[in-house]
Nucleic acid binder design. Structure first.
Length: 703
DNA sequence: CAGTGAGCGAGCTTCCGCTTGACTT
């Protein structure tokens, strides 16, 4: 480029900085000449990882440094900044985004950037919203910046004081924090409830009845005007005897119309919940795939971002998207287009920096994009597409017919649901409800019915369920603990630390997890309180909105906290010994029992005679089923570390037996090989034989 | 879809919240 032209370019040129590179690309397309767009890729300036870096005596002044690996980005940004005369800081419209803008501004000013630096805010990536924001530049909101600083400092203090406490009292390398420790608490306390629950037997009775040639089933719902009590099979027989010779007469027919409303478009939390429940994805997998859809897929004509940003707490959608989806519905489901757009009230306390998660274009139906997506991408995209389109369609209407049928003292009830207007449910396939309804014939009051047979069934009362990815995320969101960007990482962290393990999709605390929970809850009940974060948020609001002093807020917290930490450090006895789990295994070198220990690479068996005997081995999960092989099956990882586990024989390379699914203690009743745990959406968790020739599989019984 | 295969023993670790890649410490 000739020098003159470059000079020309510099004038009136503007650099706009956002957080996400994908967002930057989109905005660049919208803005065109005179603008360049760059991304910070998250935070650039933060506390160092290696030490506390907070000066307690100096009003908790944090010592900020360039985040590891981000120096290059900062350098590039300041180079770009030197070539323009106007900079627009357009990081997200929330606390963290404000802090990013603040740090960027300080940095650029230090670099003697001559350009005018302003902050702009938009909550959706549409040309109109961005142009409007550019016309209304703002100052950086120091209330928000201070609130973020307070949040950051508090989390640093909690995490970097509690973790070393655990190193000293329990084990090196452990961690605790405002968010992870409460999540652990929830899982541990739920586990207690599960353990304490005793299932009780009860029975239900169903009468199969006949009117003319039509058979249908009616459930016993009352006896002598009260809920029937059927604790065992004997009581069922007794009740049936009492009804012998009595007629079944229709007492009442009730019809009720029920409307069901579509649900709001997805937030991160709701997407993770549905994706776990409908597709069997972990939160982590959901987010990975959503990221791919967001960054863009090559659909013939080029790379297109198929969904909006996937980390959001808002159900809001842009007017542009609303207009488009209404047009789409009008063309494809004209009867189901409501006269007016449907408004979804914003979630409580949502920071609302982004739109809801929705398809970028309604017209990219799952069918249309199918051939360009992987199976998992398509399934997740379909979920998002169905939820969004349906959110702007009419209600569905169904009619429930309930027949109350008397027989002596007993009241039986049959019901049937018929969909009158499908409404929004027309677009639901993956998200369709699974309820099925029985058919009952035309009945009227006073009709006499013929009993074909009784069907009785044994049940047990169901206790509380352990948390899954779906239910822990739901709980965290309800309690305002964590943010959309952290739900999935929280679960991963608890698993990585071996505080929690996944069994049949459920989150079960380990021995270590329980020990940590007990220690923390005994000494730091206030921080472990599920309401601690919500209270912190209220105080941050005061800092942000009422300009309250953030140092005072931290001071109030710090004094008693510090005292407590010092006290526990001095007085609590170390429980390091309690960590080793006894096992049945005996050391083949010295005959002493082996214990299960947690090492750098997970659990292993070690001789209890350590340090005299240094024997160690992998934890055997099953016997090798190969005829003539006396090896054990143990967990192994591909070289390099981080890849998924597989399960092989200790006699490798003599025996190359391998399984990809986790062995269980069950043996196949058909061939004697061990059974492995598998999962699919339709069956849930089940056991399958590890022998490829043997196709045997069976359902996993509830524990 | 194939093919995958240690050792770990008090080795300095840790927080939460933004964002995406990832190369020699």
């Amino acid at each position: 480029m000739p020098k003159k032209a470059a000079e020309q370019n510099k004038k009136n040129s503007t650099l706009l900085i956002v957080e996400s590179p994908a967002k930057a690309k989109t905005i660049e397309r919208y803005l065109g000449k005179g603008y360049s767009v760059a991304a910070s890729i998250g935070h650039l300036i933060d506390l160092p990882k290696s030490r506390m870096a907070i000066d307690i005596d100096k009003d908790f002044e944090p010592e900020y440094i360039t985040v590891r690996g981000k120096a290059k980005i900062l350098k590039e940004l300041s180079q770009k900044a030197s070539k323009v005369d106007h900079i627009l800081l357009a990081s997200d419209n929330d606390r963290e985004g404000e802090a990013i803008s603040f740090h960027l501004k300080s940095f650029l000013e230090k670099k003697n950037t001559k350009a005018k630096i302003e902050r702009i805010i938009f909550n959706e990536i549409t040309p109109a919203a961005i142009r409007e924001a550019i016309l209304k530049p703002l100052e950086i909101d120091s209330g928000k910046v201070n609130a973020q600083k307070a949040r950051r400092v508090l989390d640093r203090i909690v995490g970097y004081r509690l973790s070393p406490l655990l190193w000293k009292k329990v084990k090196n390398g452990l961690s605790a924090g405002r968010v992870q420790s409460v999540a652990l608490r929830l899982i541990c306390e739920r586990e207690k409830e599960v353990e304490d629950f005793t299932p009780e037997e009860y029975w239900t009775l169903e009468a199969e009845l006949k009117k003319d040639k039509h058979h249908f089933a009616a459930q016993l719902v009352q006896y002598s005007g009260a809920k029937p009590v059927l604790p065992d099979s004997k009581s069922v027989e007794l009740l049936k005897e009492k009804l012998i010779g009595k007629d079944f007469i229709v007492r009442e027919i009730k019809k009720a119309e029920k409307k069901s409303q579509p649900r709001a478009p997805y937030t991160t939390s709701k997407l993770q919940q549905d994706s776990a429940n409908r597709l069997g994805f972990t939160s982590r997998k959901t987010m990975q795939i959503a990221q791919q859809l967001y960054e863009g897929i090559n659909i013939g004509s080029g790379r297109v971002g198929l969904i909006t940003y996937m980390r959001t707490d808002s159900t809001r959608i842009s007017i542009q998207a609303l207009t488009e989806v209404r047009q789409f519905i009008g063309e494809n489901y004209p009867d189901d287009l409501p006269a007016n757009p449907i408004n979804y009230s914003p979630a409580k306390r949502s920071q609302d920096a982004h739109e809801a998660i929705r398809p970028t274009y309604s017209s990219y139906t799952p069918d249309y994009v199918k051939e360009y997506l992987t199976k998992d991408q398509l399934r997740l995209y379909t979920l998002i597409w169905e939820r969004f389109i349906s959110s702007q369609m009419k209600n569905s209407v169904s009619e429930t017919t309930t027949a109350d049928i008397e027989c002596g003292e007993a009241l039986f009830r049959a019901s049937m649901t018929r969909v009158k207007e499908k409404g929004y449910q027309k677009v639901l396939k993956i998200l369709a409800s699974k309820e099925k309804s029985e058919k009952i014939p035309e009945l009227k009051q006073g009709d006499s019915l013929v009993l074909s047979e009784y069907k009785s069934e044994q049940h047990f009362t169901q206790g509380p369920s352990r948390f899954t990815d779906a239910s822990i995320v739901k709980m965290l969101e309800e309690k305002e603990i964590g943010r959309p960007s952290t739900y999935a990482p929280i679960i991963s962290l608890l698993l990585d630390r071996h505080y929690v393990s996944r069994k049949n999709r459920q989150l079960v605390p380990t021995q270590l997890g329980k020990i940590i929970y007990e220690l923390l809850v005994n000494s730091f009940n206030d921080i472990l309180d599920v309401n601690f974060t919500a209270e912190m948020e209220r105080k941050l609001d005061d800092v942000e909105i009422n300009n309250e002093n953030w140092v005072g807020m931290i001071q109030d917290f710090y004094k008693p906290f510090n005292k407590k930490v010092e006290h526990v450090m001095e007085t609590l006895e170390s429980i390091k010994g309690a960590l080793d789990e006894k096992t049945e295994y005996v050391c083949e070198n010295c005959g002493k029992p082996m214990v299960k220990k947690l090492g750098r690479f997970g659990y292993f068996l070690a001789c209890s005679g350590f340090p005299e005997c240094k024997n160690t081995k992998s934890v055997p999960l099953a016997e090798c089923p190969r005829p003539g092989c006396d090896g054990m099956i143990v967990a192994r990882k591909k070289q390099g570390g981080k890849s998924k586990e597989f399960y092989g024989c200790t006699n490798y390379p003599e025996c190359d037996f391998i399984s990809h699914s986790k062995p269980t203690s069950k043996k196949c009743p058909v061939c004697g090989y061990f059974m492995v745990e598998k999962y699919d959406k339709a069956r849930g968790t089940y056991y399958s034989c590890s022998n490829h020739e043997c196709k045997n599989s069976m359902e996993a019984e509830e524990e």
